[in-house]
Amino acid sequence: MSDSGPTPDQRLTLARLADVLVAEGLGMPAASAVGVADGLLDRCLDAAPALAEPLLALLDEVPADDLDAFVRGLAARRPDDFAILTTTVVGAYYLSAEVRELIGYPGQQPSPLSAAAEPEYFEMLERVYDRHPGYRECP
């Protein structure tokens, strides 16, 4: 990432590209609506700094119109660049607290182990033991 980070124009371009990839639908907001090109982008690039340089270079070549065709062209012919774009957009999108709440994702939180609900598997395990021929004997 450059010292100053993405420019306003680059953020605007990313927001428009991101909405081609992650549009509003199925009760979920579009990417730009949750700030994928704003603070979430900064968090994403802070976590994965190697994305920044190729991403910003890619944003600088995006035409003013027909973004849809541009994104489809990346998907069809430039898989590495498409991966940079989609990793950034999807990664930033799922950092959104609003999105996480909508899909029921609390994050990778600690949750103590509990075996309370599991005795039922011992019956199944007994059947494994009963039907298994035993390990292959070796000379």
Binding site: L21, V22, A23, G25, V71, R100
Partner: peptide, 26 residues
């Protein structure tokens, strides 16, 4: 979600753009 979607996308990478992206992304 990022991992789960990436796995899904990789397994379906030969499908149409519309199947995987846009409103269908979700």
């Amino acid at each position: 979600p990022m991992f789960a979607v990436a796995e899904y996308q990789e397994a379906h990478r030969h499908e149409d753009f519309e199947t995987l992206w846009g409103p269908s992304f979700h």
